[in-house]
Design a protein around this nucleic acid. Structure first.
Lengths: 196, 196
DNA sequence: CTACCTTTGTGAAGAATTTCACAAGCGACC
DNA sequence: GGTCGCTTGTGAAATTCTTCACAAAGGTAG
């Protein structure tokens, strides 16, 4: 989050930013900003604030955005399309090296700059292309099986959009996004606004 | 999350579920399950566990899923389409009453069961249709302006997919999902696997 | 009815996170 | 060079969240 706003400031030519300013942009507190950043090092100058450009570089390094990540997208549906279309995606060094689906009418179709391939090619391609990240954009049914397969093939991180719990071995990182659940959270908030 | 898995169990005809079982399904601990549920009441029977069907009902009530929520989708792009297509969406009582975009070639196009309308109709429609929830699936630029407008028109909760920080008055609930940020989290995890 | 197995609900302990508050450092200005 | 205003970095305090551990049931079997 800090990186996103620091990049904006950098683009605008701003030289330094105080923890107060970053906090306002990110919707947090100055103390939080300072604690967060201090975890990784001492980037600021007292009396001045943080050097915007230098800090973006540092954060990019910390986040591991210094090189290209090879990503496979599993599921050629709307969510997969939304991700592949997203400019910020490639901008940040995430390169989509393959899109996979198992519906016959989708396989072979052009899809952005790639062509949708069969799930049966997935394991082989992951190994061959050295993809380390997989985006899972398929229905809940069978999601775990697909995960097991790609983990076996060498995938080390998974971004899961399937509305189900996924289990991975400890050497694999996992993040899940569940849109329905987010909406339900809003429903709860609306319903209990008075009580809180 | 509990609701999701309880529904599955209910469909399978299971009568009761222990905190242990729920914890396994949800990827958490039995103690966590019991604390979470006990916050809202005392639903279980000692020695037996939780009554599956009754608890799903209770949770639906707590989450405010007992009635229909009227939702507008702002931005007729891929993300919006993914959401509208999502079955679990309507299933959970979220009814899309309008889709809005400001690109002339999209306005008037059919879109699922609705027709894409102009953003200039948005404020009026929100009032007329009594929509309380808005899904924001547009680029970061101008997102805040759109938010201000719909909040003014009576929207009380926003699910934001625009990759930017959004400010809302205290009576409005906000959840943000940022796919690029999730991926960067994975990049960080991969980069720092050794250190941790 | 009693003994025993199971599982909840919950105070208390422990861990993690956030906020506070202030010394220390930096630059600017006279 | 000294003073002053500003902002960081960080221990300590406060708060929040998670885990532990066990008494209080509910059920069952004999």
């Amino acid at each position: 989050m800090y990186l996103r706003y620091l990049e904006d400031l950098d683009t605008n030519g701003q030289q330094t930013a105080s923890s107060d300013e970053l906090a306002q942009l990110c919707g947090t507190t100055p103390a939080q900003v300072r604690k967060d950043l201090s975890f990784f090092g001492s980037f600021g100058k007292r009396g001045l604030g943080y050097p915007v450009h230098e800090l973006t570089d540092q954060l990019r390094g910390i986040l591991g955005l210094g090189h290209e990540w090879r990503v496979v997208i599993i599921g050629a549906g709307k969510i997969g399309a939304a991700l592949a279309n997203y400019r910020g995606f490639l901008q940040r060094g995430f390169r989509v090296v393959g899109v996979y689906d198992n519906s016959p009418e989708k396989i072979g179709q052009p899809w952005g700059e790639a062509i949708v391939r069969s799930m049966s090619d997935l394991a082989r391609d992951v190994k061959q292309e050295d993809a380390l990240i997989a985006v899972l954009a398929i229905p809940a049914e069978g999601a775990q099986d697909v995960v097991d397969m790609v983990v076996d093939a060498g995938i080390r991180a998974i971004l899961n959009f399937a509305p189900t719990q996924i289990a991975v071995p400890p050497h694999v990182s996992l993040k899940s996004v569940n849109m329905a659940m987010e909406l339900e959270g809003l429903s709860f908030a609306l319903t209990n606004k008075g009580a809180a």
